[in-house]
Design a protein around this nucleic acid. Sequence first.
RNA 1: GCGAUCGUAGCUCAGUCGGUUAGAGCGCUGGUUUGUGGUACCAGAGGUCGUGGGUUCGGAUCCCAUCGGUCGCCCCA
Length: 420
Amino acid sequence: MAKIETPRPVRGTQDMLGGTAEAFQERFAHVVAAFDKVRRLYGFQRVEVPVFEATAVFARSLGESTDVVSKEMYTFDDRGGDSITLRPEFTAGIARAYVTEGWQQYAPLKVATNGPLFRYERPQKGRFRQFHQLDAEIIGAGEPGADIELLVFADQLLRELGVSEGVTLNLNTLGDAQSREAWRAALIAHFEAHRDQLSEESLDRLNRNPLRILDSKDPRDRPVADSAPDIDAYLTDEAKAFFDKVTAGLDAAGVAWERNSRLVRGLDYYRHTAFEFITDRLGAQGTVLGGGRYDGLIENLGGPATPAVGWAAGIERLAMLIDAPQQDRPSVAVIPMGEAAETKATGIIADLRRNGVACDMGYRGNMKKRMQRANASGAAWAIILGDDELARGEAALRDLRSGEQQAVPLAALVEKLTAL
RNA sequence: GCGAUCGUAGCUCAGUCGGUUAGAGCGCUGGUUUGUGGUACCAGAGGUCGUGGGUUCGGAUCCCAUCGGUCGCCCCA
């Protein structure tokens, strides 16, 4: 008989098993739990949006960056012939819902979500095809206060996770449309004047996405990129006032930040604030949380002109940075010996669980094996139930830490253990 | 799409100037102790050496191809 070949997991996907101190799943869950806790403190409502959308939702949101649309998205036709795309980001879907579900009535709307996203990329450290993000958005608020609130939220999350130490907030402004255009023109002029010093890749970027030359990793580009003009000289008074309010707000809230005049966004609908929390502990993927103001996006999706700002954070990346979280252990291991005892134990364990006592039953192997498993499970107590105990209507309750053991009437077990 | 590097037991890895039956630790099963763990000792099960081809008397080891992992480039919404 031919050997059946087990299908392999799809490239860039992960399976996560919890239950042990080193388990990545435990870290992952801790990041999500911390996010949910902080999100409530800041009054962000939980929102759920579909994992897939009509392709147009993302295609329009990404606009002209054709490489991303054509090569990086999981797009397919469904049985009805409609083009569907697995979400590569949260913002577009939330913006779509804001328009189609009439959420405009709640503006300014503070929402948060988290879940899986999909991008067809080559996996590497901190990069997967199915990955997961936390996401927070404020839609319908054009005031710098919204940017500030979001940034303080992000900062507090990183503090709660204990990773703020090695992570710095890089902050920049892209100005309003007018500032951005003027700066862009100046940058192109600068790069054109130094064409001969740029790498081939950056020469290509010059046509495609000139702002990206600013954060090129190629050492040949650095001198030209570093000597390129900041946006500061091109900011309108309004844009400058906006950025000043954001930085003043951060200072007032005690959030440390660094100006990074090379931090840019490729898409045109980004305005004003752009930020990334960056670490050097994750290899090539240093951004742990990033976002900015996208005042032009909702209009791009056919909605009313709506100012909005938001951020997203990679759960896997955060999970790689945090210390191993404390994990919950079952506190009681029930060890029956013999069939009659096992039946009785089934009732006892159900009773304990209904009364909020976390417990597990050991039903494999000999006594020694069961005790070993009970010990390995981290349980603090073992309830040993054999024919002898059963006949006396009691169970042996053993403290697995001290080794002390006592007989407890079966009827008193729940009371005894819930009192501990 | 490009580059580097690695694929040996369930896991982590030894073993390669080509040479009898491929090893260890952990885990698993059983035993020393017919019902008592965190120690110890003994035994056992478990491997198409990623896959296919080539060179050779002989390949885990050398060559080619292919698949997969990892890291980096590109891209980064």
